[in-house]
Computed example of a mutant assay.
Amino acid sequence: MKTILKKEETLIVFQGNTDRLFDYFVRDATDGEFLNYVELKGTAQEGMKEEDLEKCDFLSGIVGIPIFSERFVEKSSYFLNQECMFYPIEIKCKNRVKTFYLTKINCYQEWIDYDSSGFRILVDGSKMLTKPIVTKVFDNEFYLTRDTITKSRWAASEKLKKFVEEHKLNVEFEIVR
């Protein structure tokens, strides 16, 4: 999934400790207890306009955590609540503030073919996945899923894509091969 915005500098920058957000939402390294004591806030980069907040149902954050609009969550929560947890976040763009939801995906599948995928070698010699290749067939029992190995990579099913199209939600989909 990706935002419908076709311009540069439209990522959401989270305020506060992004390590804790990443540890909970992506790495599953914490229990998320800190979320009971913080107010989640984010700021749009300078390329986003105030009216973009009204038309987007998905925003991209700098840490790779899915951010969905209130409209998207209201329409999909009856089935996505089984796979995801939603946390309200105030997104500020210029002078406008709007509620969106950070999403923790709790469904996992092994779907990346690591032998065929592209990697970048980092300074310390470790590899970072840059171009995942999907060769495994997804089961259609999910809407959103994360890879079991690279938890920062997640995918949407055809069922979710169809739901988005039927409800005319403003989300785009990337095809990963």
Rank of each mutant, 00 (worst) to 15 (best):
E39G: 11
G47S: 06
G47D: 09
Q45A: 09
T30N: 06
M48A: 11
L11S: 11
K7P: 02
F22K: 14
K41S: 10
F22Y: 15
D31Q: 01
Q15H: 12
R27Q: 15
I4G: 01
D31V: 05
T3I: 03
Y37L: 08
G42N: 02
V13Q: 13
D19F: 14
E39W: 07
G32E: 01
L53Q: 01
F22V: 12
Y37T: 07
D19K: 15
L5N: 03
D23P: 04
E46F: 13
A29F: 11
R20I: 15
E33F: 13
R27M: 13
Y37C: 08
V26D: 00
N36K: 13
V13G: 06
E9C: 10
T18R: 15
G32H: 04
G16K: 00
V13Y: 07
R20D: 14
V38Y: 04
L35Y: 01
L21K: 08
K41V: 06
G16W: 07
F14R: 00
Q45T: 08
K6D: 12
E8V: 10
K6Y: 06
E9F: 12
Y24R: 02
D19L: 15
K41D: 04
T18I: 15
Y24I: 04
E8I: 09
K6P: 05
N17C: 01
E50C: 07
F25E: 03
I12F: 03
K6H: 13
F34S: 05
D28Q: 07
Y24N: 01
V26P: 02
G47F: 00
K41Y: 10
Q45K: 09
L11Q: 13
L35F: 02
K41Q: 15
Y24H: 07
C56Q: 04
C56V: 04
M48K: 02
A29Y: 12
E39R: 12
V26S: 06
L21W: 10
T10Y: 08
Q15I: 08
F34R: 01
E39T: 12
T43F: 09
V26F: 02
Q45E: 14
Q45S: 06
F14A: 09
E39Y: 07
T18W: 05
F25L: 05
C56G: 03
E9L: 10
L40V: 08
T10N: 10
C56N: 07
K7A: 06
G42D: 00
T3V: 08
Y37A: 10
D19S: 15
L53P: 00
K55T: 11
F34W: 09
K55Y: 04
F14K: 05
A44G: 09
G16V: 06
G32N: 02
K7I: 11
T18H: 01
I12W: 00
R27H: 15
M48H: 04
F34H: 08
D23F: 06
F25W: 00
E8R: 14
D52N: 07
I4Y: 03
T43S: 11
F34Q: 03
K41P: 03
T10F: 00
K6I: 09
C56K: 02
D23C: 14
E46R: 10
V38P: 02
K41A: 11
T3D: 01
D23Y: 03
K6V: 09
F25K: 01
